[in-house]
Amino acid sequence: MQIQSPNILLIVVAAVVMVLYVFTNSAVLVWVERKVSAHIQRRPGPFEVGPFGLLQTAIDGLKLMAKQLIIPAKADKRIFMLAPVLSFVPPIAALLTVPFGKVVQVQNLDIGILFILSLAALNVLAILIAGWSSANKYSLFGAVRSVAQNIAYEIPLLLSLLTAVLWMGTLNLGELVDAQGGFWFVFTPFGFIAFVIYFVTGMAETNRAPFDLPEAESELTAGFHTEYSGMGFGLFFLGEYTNMILVSAIATSLFLGGYNLPFITLNGEGILWELIRVLIFLAKAYFLIFVMIWMRWTFPRVRFDQLLNLCWKVLIPFSLVNLAAAAIWIKAVGG
């Protein structure tokens, strides 16, 4: 076995860049969320700190860092401190395999999508131990909800991703994007259904309204992060926004043709072309995030058993039938 390219330095540099990107991304997303929600609610949102209130999040982050970290007396301290880190690190690692452009992809793994999914599975673990270790009944409820919800939505999520993988015949994210080219997977009927199912379950994966059951403010006060203060809460927050960009990046690469325009495949060489591709990718991903924010500020929260019903009675049958139909189509027509 011969190892060819020692790109460990690249990975380290890229990881640092990725952490920086995650921080800026979260800061910008918090600002976007506040602005969008404000305008939907007919108020201006933050506008004092910096131009258009852009520095508001930076100030808020500073405040969070300066705040005292309160650990409840009966909490399991080590686990309590571990949970926010666990919710924050895996999405960053998963982002390393996302193909932002043809070249701008830190590590193109053959099993890229599987790698991302396995890291995403750690998110629920973080919520679970956060809720458990807080020694708070509301947090416990949030944690329990999170697990039951996780079991329900993971299946349609995987099935819908499987449809895309089956269609393109690869697990490699870069190849998935290239296989679509200009003809995005979402343009096919199977792709469209899979995309809708993925988007719904992806919102559940990020624990955002209308599926924000683990934190359900009006029922469980703040659910699993009730007891977290200061940067502990901040890390959960960062994790949530990183998860959002991760979910929409997967949707972009698997269903929306990645960095390709509709019906136009961008294959040009050089820095400029690469920049255009990255911008297209980010535009798609952030548009999906915008839709998520828009939905969050429009809909009420679903009830716990309704989410399970939705997943078991609607999403799983649809995604199964969709997968089977896609398989039959591939066999009959040849993809």
């Binding site: 403010e217 009006s218 500020w297 009420p300 929260r301």
Partner: peptide
Amino acid sequence: LLDLGAFT
């Protein structure tokens, strides 16, 4: 509606 989780 706030109780039901809709903020707007």
